[in-house]
């Protein structure tokens, strides 16, 4: 029974102060069925960390727990603060923005309203306007469609809106759930380029992807999730070279 000891050992090696996000022994159940069996990982400030794994491995559940959308066991600490008792709507105020699977844009709201809604807890009018300009600079397509209902956007544009909306909250940690889902290869390239650009501007990224190839290329570190537990971890190049990863996730 060495598994429970492993996280403790890791904690001695990497003190909590160094990790921006520290997830420890995370468990999560849906209607009594365990989806996560003690997941532990860390994300350092400024990193791009990716969780790769098959459908149903529990990747989305990890992000739901961090965002307070689902009750969890174990501990999640962000910049030293315990997130256990923090209600979901307070998470974004702490500096964590979540781009959910399926984008979660509000189709009946205009593009502009979608972007404004994400600033619900901000009161700095000038800062909000500046951020809006910055987001529209990153995604010029959104500027053209500012007054259109978000439901009329294409899938790629909706993904841009979802990411842009997350940026409107001035997050220091961006959670991205399957940003490449349903997009053409060209758009996948585009969205990953933007993710790297956002990261270079100082935002930490925790990326959940089924497209392991792309994810491992941009990630500084990666964790492989299988049936609710971390089975492998390492740097992006390490995992790309790992025969198990190559066989299971890269189709090599």
């Amino acid at each position: 029974m060495s598994a429970p000891l492993a996280p403790a050992a890791e904690a001695r090696l990497a003190p909590a102060a160094e990790a921006q996000l520290e997830v420890r022994d995370l468990t999560l159940s849906y209607d009594g069925i365990r989806a996560l069996h003690g997941v532990s990982f860390t994300v350092g400030a400024g990193e791009i960390v990716t969780l790769v794994g098959a459908n149903g491995a529990g990747k989305t559940s990890v992000l739901r727990a961090i965002s307070g959308l689902a009750p969890f066991g174990g501990s999640i600490r962000f910049e030293g603060q315990d997130l256990r008792r923090v209600p979901a709507h307070r998470i974004v105020g702490l500096g964590i923005a979540h781009v959910p699977e399926g984008r979660g844009v509000f189709g009946n709201l205009t593009v502009h309203e979608n972007l404004r809604l994400a600033t619900w807890q901000r009161r700095d009018r000038a800062g909000i306007e500046a951020d809006l300009e910055r987001v529209l600079g990153t995604f010029p397509r959104l500027r053209e469609r500012l007054r259109q209902p978000a439901g009329t956007l294409s899938g790629g544009e909706q993904q841009m809106l979802a990411v842009g909306r997350a940026l409107m909250s001035r997050a220091r940690l961006l959670l991205l759930d399957e940003p490449s889902m349903g997009l053409s290869p060209r758009l996948v390239q585009e969205i990953f380029r933007v993710i790297e650009e956002i990261n270079r501007s100082g935002v930490t990224v925790l990326l959940v992807e089924q497209n392991a190839n792309m994810a491992l290329h941009v990630a500084s570190r990666a964790y492989v999730l299988e049936t609710g537990a971390v089975t492998l971890s390492g740097t992006g190049p390490e995992l790309r070279g790992d025969p198990r990863v190559r066989e299971a996730y890269l189709g090599a």
Partner: peptide, 23 residues
């Protein structure tokens, strides 16, 4: 803003808390 939040909830309230809106 309150009306915007109401309309967002009417579309799908699952992800509204992610915007910082207390549903």
């Amino acid at each position: 803003p309150v009306g915007m939040a109401m309309r967002a909830i009417s579309w799908d309230r699952t992800f509204v808390p992610l915007m910082g809106v207390p549903v």
